[in-house]
Design a protein around this nucleic acid. Structure first.
Length: 134
RNA sequence: CGAUCAAGUUGGGCAAUUGCUCUCCGCUAUAGGCGGGGGGAGGAAAGUCCGAACUCCACAGAGCAAAGCGCCGGAUAACGUCCGGGCAUUAAUUUAUUAAUGACGGAAAGUACCACAGAAAAGAUACCUCCCCGGUGUAAAUCGGAGAAAGGGUGAAAUGGCAGGGUAAGAGCCUACCGCUCUAAAAGUAAUUUUAGAGGUUCCUUUAAAGGAAGUGGCGCUUUAGCGCCAUCAAGGCAAACCCCACUUGGAGAAAGGUCAAAUAGGAAAGUUCCACGCCACGGCGUGGCGAGGCUGCUCGCUUUGAUUAGCUUUCGGGUAGACCGAUCGAGGGUUGAAGUAAUUCAACUCCCAGACAAAUAAUUGCCGUGGCGCUUUUGGCGUCAUUACAAAAUUCGGCUUAUAGACUUGAUCGUCUU
RNA sequence: CGGAACGUAGCGCAGCCCGGUAGCGCACUACCUUGGGGUGGUAGGGGUCGCAGGUUCAAAUCCUGUCGUUCCGA
């Protein structure tokens, strides 16, 4: 596995998994309330890498803006996933995450860049590790 | 030269690293794996407003309903689109041209509506007024009768306009010009245009957009004179009110539709009910072996039992999850030539150019280009800042509509400077 | 991807079909009633009818375009 890849088997694609996450997952926010994450852990010694999805509400903006947010969130995860994947490897757990923007829409942030997103994602990923480690 | 507005064109390029997606080749050997080559958003991909392709369902034929469309001709697979022509409106000036815009058939087929004001809002009218006759009165005026609708007034709109004649006052009552209708000829495929000709009378009846008589004009018959037929100027607006006429349209949509098909439940069919042999009235019965249970510490032995509105096995059909197809080579793009005023069409050569499905085009950086500002300042060079708008395929095409930074082109308006 | 409805006063709605006056309830303001408040009564203010264009003498109403909101279909 390459260190910065983000292929199809690292994403959540099954509808049932989404339902399970939204009904029984834990929720955490970044400190500026811009980004929300829904996640839970499963004991599994075979598949060690986490699975991630990105979801944007239809009310946040138009199609162009939503696509842009999804790409930036994916990029942020891709470049910052090393600590969390190694954590999963140690604990022999499988992690599922859904990343979403929260209190973050097109009207207030018409043009957004990579820098607007990265700190929130880093913060959330480290928070997930901290909470599970306790 | 600058600013603003409107319309149109364009919607930066090359490279590196890390990633994503499709595809081809190779390796591993079947998994969303590894390596290499190649492709990878737009002018609107948007809104989903029209028209088609494609798919399934329905369908003898005709009509009605409903919806849409509407000057004429052409283009097209088709269109509410495009091109050309006509007409109308508006603007500008050159006053007959240019530009822009136009849901641009029918209001003498019928029904409805037209607030307020006004006599009257559409077959019937008369407030002020004009005029004549008669009565009263010195007169002003007023009453009764008859005529008129020119002028005033109301209104968005008042029953063709305008000028002259005419008259008691008026009136297409008469005349000229304009308008309108009809007929004929010419130009044009047609819409339409041009030219020529004709058409404005009086009276009567009557719940009345009618009818009759006379007159005038034309045509035909015929015998000078008559007979017959046709015409003899109003029709307010509104059809983006109902409607009439002409034309078009079967319905649903890729969540269309097709192929393969797990598990569970249910449906249909066949086989089987521990095995072998024998008997049989075909339901079973007997003997031996086999499995399971019981008696027992174990073996032998004895004994019970081997399920029938059911179970098991196999097959079939429908079909869910899921997978695959539909799916990207097409009314396709580019270049050149030909036809046509043009939309567009034809021919030759050439190219292959996204195909996902919780949904791929991203992040970071460099150079060039472009634009602004400053310095230097003839071409130019240097520094610095920005590289930004709108907005991302989802079956595919043809249009329409709307959104758009900067640059470029054209036009209009305003301002400044020079001549 | 396909389909439907709604935008009118601070809030909730009527008026639109069939065009001429924008109205109702709550809220708001003033006054009366009360010793004061509430209740009750009287009077009043407040609306570019989402936006733009068109038809018409006249548009919230008819037509076209556009913006926004909400809902439905696996």
């Amino acid at each position: 596995m390459k260190p910065f890849s983000f292929g199809k088997n690292e994403r959540i694609k099954e509808k049932k998994l989404f339902e399970k996450l939204y009904t029984s997952g834990k929720i955490s926010f970044s400190s500026n309330k811009k980004i929300k994450a829904v996640y839970f852990f499963v004991e599994d010694s075979n598949a060690v890498f986490p699975k991630v999805a990105v979801a944007v509400s239809k009310k946040a903006g138009n199609a162009f803006w939503r696509n842009r947010v999804k790409r930036l969130l994916r990029e942020a995860y891709r470049l910052n996933k090393l600590p969390i994947s190694s954590f999963c490897k140690e604990k022999k757990k499988r992690l599922f995450i859904i990343l979403s923007p929260f209190l973050f829409n097109q009207k207030e942030h018409k043009t957004i860049g990579y820098i607007d997103v990265v700190p929130g994602v880093q913060e959330i990923l480290s928070a997930i590790i901290r909470n599970e480690d306790k």
